[in-house]
């Protein structure tokens, strides 16, 4: 378990998240992929925190977790609003700036 192996693992998770972001057509499935990418970033923070000492790694990761939770909350509220006006959560339906 070295720093580079942790970083490679985080890169793999991030790439898997990118794959999901590019292929999925449901809004909530896209949100799930974004969660994976955020987790990969947190893993990078935690790895550097472990291998370089100090509380900065974990503190940054804590802030990142708080921000991601806020983003998911607002994102899901938007998805629900979208569902109410379009009846479906496919991202391809989001074509107009206003109904």
């Amino acid at each position: 378990m070295t720093l580079s192996s942790c970083l490679v693992l985080a890169s793999a998770l991030f790439s898997i998240g990118i794959y999901g972001l590019l292929t999925r057509r449901q809004a909530i499935a896209v949100l799930l992929s974004v969660e994976l990418m955020a987790n990969a970033a947190n893993l990078v923070f935690a790895s550097f925190g472990h291998f370089r000492g100090g509380p900065t790694g974990q503190t940054f990761a804590l802030f990142a977790v708080a921000l991601t939770v806020a983003e998911v909350a607002v994102g899901l509220a938007l998805v629900i609003l979208f569902y109410r006006s379009h009846g479906d959560t496919q991202v391809d339906l989001a074509r107009e700036l206003r109904q």
Binding site: M1, L9, L62
Partner: peptide
Amino acid sequence: LFAVLGASFLAGVQVLLYIGGVMTLT
């Protein structure tokens, strides 16, 4: 992974906020 990396507080917060919060929301 966080726990193995010695970030036990972060691991606890991850379970509490992400799985208990974000998963529930999703």
